[in-house]
Computed example of a mutant assay.
Amino acid sequence: MAQATGGDSSVVRRINSAATLRALRGGEVLTVTALMEATGLSRPTVEGVVDGLLAEGLVVETTTAEGEDGSRPRGRPARRFRFHAEAGHLLGIDVGVHRIRVVLADLGGTIIGRAARTVEEGCEAEDRLERVRAAVSETLRRAQVSRNSLWGVGVGTPGIVDTEGVVTLSSAMPGWTGLDLGGRLGRSFSCPVQVENDANLAAIGERWKGVAVGSDDIVYVMAGLSPGAGSFINGRLHRGFGGAAGEIGALHLLGRQVTPENLLSTTGTPLPPLDEAAVGEVFRHAAEGDRTAGEAVDRFVQRLIHDVTALVLALDPEIVVIGGWAAGLADAVPPLTAELRRLCLRMPRVELSALGADGVALGAVRVALDRAEHRLFAVEHTGSARA
C-alpha cells in the first residue's frame, strides 16, 4: 500500500493507523519490519503509529519469542505486536419466544462467554426484558468482563423491526408490538444497541461462521410453525422498505388454507403458535415410525417447500440454509432439495444450518462487530477509537 501523503495530517495518521490495525487484525504477531511490508509504510511511520495504538490500548507488545531450541535470540530483540482484542467486547442477544440467549465476544470476534435462560411463551414484555438483563449480567459475571468494556450490543427478535430499533409488529410475544426495544435495552448500556429481526441475524451469522461463508446471495429460512427468512442479495442484507422482507409465514394465506398451528397437529387440536416442545415431539414420533406424526411432518415439509420455492424463484440465491428451532429439520432437507430441483429454474445449494441455537445471537455479535470495525478504521476518526 502506498504511503498517504499531503492533506490534513490527522487524516493521514488515521489512514496509516487503519492500515496497521488491519494488518494486525488477522491475529498474527508482527514485527515492525513485517508491518512495513504489510502496509507499505516507512519504519518511522510504523513506529509512530504503533506507539499511538499502544497508548490507545488497541495494540499490545508481546514478549520476545524463544528459538526452537529454547535459546534466546542474540542482539537486540525485535519488537513484536498484536491486536489487543481484549480491549473491548461485544454482546449478541437473542430474545426468543421460549429462550433468551446471550453470546459475548472480544473485538476479534472470538466467543468468550454464553448464557441462556428459558422464558414462558406468555411472559409479559417487562418480565421478558428483565430476564434479558439478568442473562446479560450472568454472562459478563462469568467471563469477568466489565460492562464498561462493551463496544456494541446486537439484539435479535421475532417480528418486523424498523431502523430505530422499534418492533413495529410481532404476534409471537405479548406486549412486543410497538415496543422500543432498542431504547429500552439501551438504558442498560453505554454503547450502541442495534436491534434486528431474528431471521435476518441468523442469515448474517450463517454468512459469518456457518455454511454460507463466502456467499453473497443467500436465503436463510428459520423453519417453524410460522417461518421467517433472511436474505442477502449481492452481498447486502435485504430488509425491504419497512423491514418486513422475509415474513413468509403469511404465505399460507395465498390459497393454502391450512393454518400453521394445524400443520403439525396429530390430535386434531391446533398446536399453540411456536410451541417448540410440541413440534419436537411430533418430529420425534415421526422418526420412530408413527404414521400420524409422519403425515404431520409431511404437511410441514410440503409447506416449507412451498415457502422456500417462492423465495428461490424470486431471488435466485446461491445457497438456501435451513435452520430454526424445530427438531428433526435434517430430515426435511432431502425432500426439500428434490422438490426444489423439480420446481426451480436453477437449483441452489441447500444446507442445514451449522450454527444451531446460537445462530441469531452470533449474527447479533457480527452486527455489533461491524459497527466496532467502522469505528476502528474510520478515516474521519478523531480522538480515542471509542469516541
Rank of each mutant, 00 (worst) to 15 (best):
R14P: 13
I15F: 05
N16V: 04
N16L: 04
T20V: 04
L24Y: 09
E28R: 14
T39W: 04
L53I: 12
A55S: 07
L58H: 06
T63F: 10
A65Y: 02
R79D: 02
A85N: 10
G88F: 11
G88P: 04
H89L: 14
L91F: 10
H98R: 13
A105N: 01
A105D: 02
R114K: 03
A115M: 11
A116H: 04
T118M: 14
C123D: 15
D127N: 09
R141F: 13
S149K: 05
L150H: 05
V153N: 02
V153Y: 04
P158I: 04
S170T: 02
A172C: 14
P174D: 11
G175Y: 15
L179S: 11
D180S: 14
S188I: 05
N197H: 03
D198Q: 07
V213P: 03
M222Q: 09
L225G: 06
S226P: 00
F232D: 11
N234R: 09
Q257N: 11
N262K: 01
G268V: 14
P270E: 06
P272Q: 07
D275W: 08
G280N: 13
F283N: 00
H285C: 12
D298I: 13
V308D: 02
V321M: 08
L329P: 00
E339N: 12
R342E: 10
G356N: 13
D358N: 08
A372V: 11
H374P: 05
A387W: 00
